Amino acid sequence: MSRSLRRGALAATAIVISIASLSACGAGNDAQTLGVRPDNAAVTVEDVKIQNALVITQPTTGAPGPAVVSATVFNNGSAPQTLDSITLGGSPAPVVLKAATGSGPITIPAGGSVVIGGKGNASATIENGHEAVKDGNGQELVFKLSRTGDVSLAAFVVPATGYFAAYGPTEIPQPPAAKPTATASPTGDAGHGGEATPTGTATPTGTATPTGTATPTGGASSSTGH
């Protein structure tokens, strides 16, 4: 075996070992890596390097809503490449790609890079992310590029909290607002703990009219003769 072939074989073996270790260390909902910033996945194939790859879910574990893929894709070649798709190993859940500006594909310029995830950057959204991935696991991601082809690696699945909040899903479903309940009106008098509500206004049916002039029956009478 030539020296160059041996170097290639050793590099490929190192990549396989690092991916296997990542999957094993990240397994389980209670993985310790959820509490710290993990050593994010990275891989290089030909002119393409992908680093800081993560799957970021909703802030609350198991909450409905989309998840996202976050990564930086480098193109060290002399020609631009487009990112045609990202797929999840073992899951049919689609990943919707969107460029940072416009409606075209995500293009990685020659000698440049593209950040996926975060405000103002390209995005890769996994619909129904809570069903497709689980926090604490290592998730296989396959990036398909126009010239290099498939580039795969295993990435940690983490919730959008702490450091990862800025790169997580922009769509955070809000819990439904509580419906207001009717307020009971008191039907009795104030003596039962509430203020009595009058049910009507008394209306007088007539005005009393005097029928005569009262005449005093005793006492001094005035005299006109003095």
Rank of each mutant, 00 (worst) to 15 (best):
G191D: 06
D39S: 13
A208S: 06
S85I: 05
E46L: 14
A24F: 13
V96G: 00
A178M: 11
T187L: 11
D189I: 10
P94D: 00
G62N: 04
P94Y: 06
D47Y: 00
L34C: 08
A132E: 07
S185M: 04
P105G: 07
V95E: 05
V48I: 12
V133H: 12
P92Q: 09
A42P: 00
G136T: 04
L145C: 07
N40R: 15
P173T: 03
A160T: 02
Q58C: 10
P64T: 01
I17T: 11
M1Y: 13
P66F: 07
G193V: 05
P175E: 14
P92Y: 01
A220R: 08
T101R: 11
L83Y: 01
P159K: 06
S23Y: 09
T215S: 12
P180T: 00
A100C: 00
T211V: 13
V48W: 02
G149M: 08
E131R: 08
V36P: 00
T205V: 06
P92V: 03
T187E: 10
A53E: 07
G112F: 07
V96R: 11
P94E: 08
V151L: 10
A41Q: 05
L5E: 15
Q58R: 05
P175R: 12
P64A: 05
G8P: 00
A63C: 13
Q174P: 03
T57P: 09
G194L: 05
P80H: 02
P59K: 05
H130Y: 07
P175G: 12
C25W: 11
V133K: 14
P210W: 01
D39A: 13
I108T: 03
Y163D: 15
G118F: 06
K144G: 07
T170C: 04
S221Q: 14
P210E: 06
K98G: 15
L97N: 01
